[in-house]
């Protein structure tokens, strides 16, 4: 139950919208649920539906429309490389290919340690600093711009170290 687990956040979210329009809160609540569980579970959908007095089917429909919402489990970190036209004109495709080669995965796949899913995405409004990607995780979303394969691998190493550390700790 989001409202019980995150009372402050839920309250803040609902306050943004007129009380008779609380359906507007569906996207922020979905973000909250996703942050909580890594992806949006069926239970979370029902919970949000009940909170906003809409049908669970409608909640599912919204998740389905937007690419940033996940309704199934993926790698803990989703590395989303922009390969759209402006980035591609500056070598994004090659960057992604080499990165995948280094990680031993294909686009869309997750590294063998289950940590990083590598994806190709559409323009992220970072066209002048290609190659670039965003890292999505339960902590949020972070842009990494002007990347090289080395810098990207460095970041992944850092993540791996951090995860190992947190597992041990």
């Amino acid at each position: 139950m989001l409202a019980e687990k995150y009372p402050e956040e839920v309250k803040k979210i609902l306050e943004k919208y007129p009380p008779e329009q609380k359906r507007s809160a569906v996207m922020p609540l979905l973000y909250l649920a996703q942050r909580d569980g890594g992806y949006i579970t069926k239970e979370a959908m029902k919970d949000i539906a009940a909170m906003l007095e809409i049908a669970p089917t409608e909640v599912a429909s919204i998740i389905g429309f937007y690419t940033l919402f996940l309704d199934e489990e993926a790698g803990k970190y989703r590395m989303q490389v922009c390969t759209d036209l402006p980035c591609a004109l500056r070598g994004a495709d090659k960057f992604l290919e080499e990165l995948c080669g280094n990680l031993g995965v294909k686009v869309g796949e997750t590294t063998s340690d289950g940590l990083v899913t590598v994806e190709a995405v559409m323009c992220l409004a970072g066209c002048d600093k290609a190659p670039m990607f965003q890292m999505q995780s339960s902590e949020g979303l972070e842009y990494h711009e002007n990347q090289t394969v080395e810098s990207a691998m460095g970041l992944i190493e850092e993540i791996r170290r951090k995860e190992q550390f947190s597992q041990q700790g």
């Binding site: 959908m45 049908a55 669970p56 089917t57 409608e58 909640v59 599912a60 429909s61 389905g64 429309f65």
Partner: peptide, 14 residues
Amino acid sequence: AFYQRGRATDIITN
């Protein structure tokens, strides 16, 4: 409701 978008759009019930 509809699920997904574009050509992938389809009908779901939950």
